[in-house]
Design a protein around this nucleic acid. Structure first.
Ligand SMILES: NC(=O)c1ccc[n+]([C@@H]2O[C@H](COP(=O)([O-])OP(=O)(O)OC[C@H]3O[C@@H](n4cnc5c(N)ncnc54)[C@H](O)[C@@H]3O)[C@@H](O)[C@H]2O)c1
Ligand SMILES: NC(=O)c1ccc[n+]([C@@H]2O[C@H](COP(=O)([O-])OP(=O)(O)OC[C@H]3O[C@@H](n4cnc5c(N)ncnc54)[C@H](O)[C@@H]3O)[C@@H](O)[C@H]2O)c1
Lengths: 220, 220
DNA sequence: AAAACTTTGTGAACGAAAGCACAAAGCCGT
DNA sequence: ACGGCTTTGTGCTTTCGTTCACAAAGTTTT
């Protein structure tokens, strides 16, 4: 037991770890020190069998007949997710969305720090937003600020170019809010958040409901 | 051929249809009238076999030896996604994120219209944002404005309450930006967009790269 | 009109993920 | 010390999703 996690945590499991961590943090905040898979699963919105299987990939951190130690499991998951260190983040594109993200407190809350804000618009470059001076990508490059994660919030037609330049800068993880398919080297991870896609998926189910008789749950 | 799609389009396929539609729209914009599965797949960031299988769930809309008619396939997918009608959307929580979404032009672009903006803060209620007067949920209820899709951008601790009230109002599709697990009736669809989760997944892979020797792609 | 070529549509193989069900493991009360 | 109770961890089954690979169906060329 308590092994440092065998290699090969399934991608689907990784996708749920943040939810578990959040639920555990909430528990800890209200004083709970121990929690069963049933309770934690409910809090995270999954089935208990799935939670246990997910946790089994990280190692055995529960006590049979009792449950999981909230503190212990939290740090285990945080460690697995690489949240023991702080990851420097750059936001590229300070329009409506970029500014909202820059103003968002949720970054620093856990393992992430916005270290730079980037835009190309001369009207924006040089201004101070959230305590950071907006710079160009070129300036960021010259400054040599280490950056691990790049968040792209530029218009879609700029996204590929921005991604290329971020990669050249050493960024190997990209979170893309622009509705564009990014092409990057194989060692760069890209995740996409797309509002239009989400709405269209909802519309699909909304429309299907109109045709089909019986109601049915459609989540995720 | 050209049947109106048998019931049972896999969820994974539905999730990719918006990307296909976007790629097709881009093609149409630049004058392309016909496209092969290979090209369209590249534009959408998937494998051609997957594209063809996905499209096969909607019916046979290609011509062997040639490819797909851009216009025809576009309207087929749009129809499948329920984008032939306009869906009324309400945004609840006009903070940083809510305002960015309200200002976003991408809604109307395709099948969605923001018909109401909601907040509880007396400093915000009554003000005009993007041509709409911000109201409370109670006022929205009294006004009787039909709403199909609710977007939640309130703090997490308000999300469940807002969701309950939206459901009571008749909303059956919810897009939740707050980091909270929502509990809704089985006939209500909920989709979640969670920035912290996305970053943490990136951090996981970032961290793993440090340990593992060979590079590897990690997308989606 | 037939041969050569291109590309679709899909059965079948493969792989990943979810869910079931229960033995094993630990607690607690007596 | 032991029996009963609770809850974990996991092998097995089933379901879902992806990829392969090729016959069928069309176009173009000769
Ligand atoms: N605003 C939203 O709610 C929302 C929602 C979903 C998706 N998106 C997407 O997010 C992106 C940004 O949306 P927005 O509403 O903030 O747009 P916006 O036009 O308000 O902002 C874009 C910003 O990017 C900057 N920019 C442009 N090219 C750049 C470059 N090459 N390098 C650096 N900066 C550059 C612009 O100067 C501008 O400040 C778009 O792709 C949009 O489709 C936005
Ligand atoms: N800002 C971001 O970039 C960002 C990114 C990811 C996630 N989020 C999440 O989105 C949500 C909103 O973020 P934000 O930065 O815009 O927060 P914010 O505090 O700026 O805005 C929240 C708004 O919701 C309103 N509100 C609160 N309770 C309400 C209620 N019961 N009914 C109606 N309105 C209510 C508030 O008056 C406020 O205007 C949060 O849950 C946050 O975690 C934000």
């Amino acid at each position: 037991m308590a092994e440092p996690a065998r290699r090969g945590v399934p991608e689907a499991t990784v996708g749920r770890l943040p939810a578990y961590l959040r639920a555990l943090t909430a528990c800890a905040a209200q004083g709970t020190t121990s929690i069963s898979s049933e309770e934690l699963a409910a809090a995270a919105g999954v089935r208990s069998a799935q939670l246990r299987k997910d946790l089994s990939y990280l190692g055995s951190y529960g006590v049979r007949g009792v449950g999981y130690d909230v503190e212990r499991l939290s740090s285990q998951i945080a460690g697995e997710l690489g949240l023991t260190q702080e990851w420097p983040v750059v936001i590229v594109g300070l329009g409506n969305l970029g500014r909202a993200l820059a103003a968002y407190g949720g970054f620093s809350e856990r393992g992430f720090r916005v270290v730079a804000l980037v835009d190309e618009d001369p009207a924006v470059v040089g201004r101070t937003v959230q305590g950071l001076t907006v710079q160009t990508l070129t300036q960021l490059d010259e400054a040599g600020t280490p950056v691990a994660i790049g968040v792209i919030t530029t218009p879609a037609d700029q996204a590929q170019d921005v991604a290329d330049r971020l990669v050249a800068l050493g960024v190997r993880s990209v979170l893309n809010f622009a509705p564009a398919v990014l092409s990057v080297p194989p060692d760069v991870a890209v995740r996409k958040v797309d509002l239009a896609t989400e709405l269209q998926i909802l519309a699909f189910h909304e429309q299907r409901r109109a045709a089909a008789p019986g109601p049915q749950e459609v989540t995720g």
